[in-house]
Design a protein around this nucleic acid. Structure first.
Lengths: 136, 136
DNA sequence: GACTGCTAGTTCGTTCTCGAACTAGTACGA
DNA sequence: TCGTACTAGTTCGAGAACGAACTAGCAGTC
């Protein structure tokens, strides 16, 4: 392989960490911890705690904690799922949607500043390649 | 911008998380916690705790904890820097080098399995684009 | 309907994390 | 050479993270 995978991974990890660090203060102003933000951003696509734990690769117990905090802050609401009484369907409140959108904007802005360093063509190349890496 | 930066970032983050999760058990077998591994892998390039904290974007107090653990396991050694008596120059032991190399191999393997999904050309494209994103 | 085995989500208690305060050493100007 | 201001690394204590054990509900078998 012409490319050292570990090095590539580490490079990428550092990039993501730096970007996240750059917008963590803005998230804090919105009343969001970093990990909570991930939950908030994903709740639309994966509305059940077990699903969130699986897609975000975090323990169930941690999801419980983040959801508890997000509910306390009024960003999220738990609803009982009539299909399966064990499940808690998680619903974004209006405040939750606002916070999520602002946090996503902050992230997009922080990452966007990095992306400006590369050409639009490279940006779409990157998107395509990452999509292939995550796809089936 | 034709590409949604936040989405791209999230995609990438999920990829890295999944890969790390896939090789965390192998790291555990080597006696390495994930965070400790990052320190171990970087110690060659950034041999001082303050430097590690800066490049890895983690708090100094955490570096202290990881280094303490790595020293206790015999992977790392602290040496006083004659140039500046405040600094602790960190040196890999033979065991530390072995553990680092094996952990890097495990990471390369886990990420490599993903990278196999894309063409060699895309792999080097990815490396170049990520390099541009992190560079000056 | 009772039994077995599964999954959803929470709780508990230990372990990890890290901001703030601290000690020790450096750098430099007066 | 003292004083002030800075940086390196550690310690401490409070809060966060999470594995294991738990409760509640589902699903299939008898």
């Amino acid at each position: 392989m012409p490319v050292d995978a570990a090095q590539l991974w580490t490079l990428n990890h550092r990039l993501l960490t730096a970007v996240l660090d750059a917008c963590s203060s803005e998230m804090a102003e919105l009343g969001l911890e970093t990990k909570e933000f991930f939950v908030l951003a994903e709740v639309g696509a994966s509305p059940y705690p077990a699903e969130l734990a699986a897609t975000l690769v975090i323990p169930k117990a941690s999801v419980t904690a983040y959801v508890r905090s997000l509910v306390a802050k009024g960003f999220l609401r738990r609803e009982i799922d009539d299909e399966d009484l064990r499940r808690h369907r998680l619903v974004l409140t209006a405040a939750g949607e606002t916070a999520r959108d602002r946090a996503l904007a902050a992230l997009a802005d922080a990452f966007g500043r990095r992306l400006e360093r590369i050409t639009p063509r490279d940006r779409s190349e990157l998107a395509r390649i990452l999509g292939d890496l995550l796809g089936p």
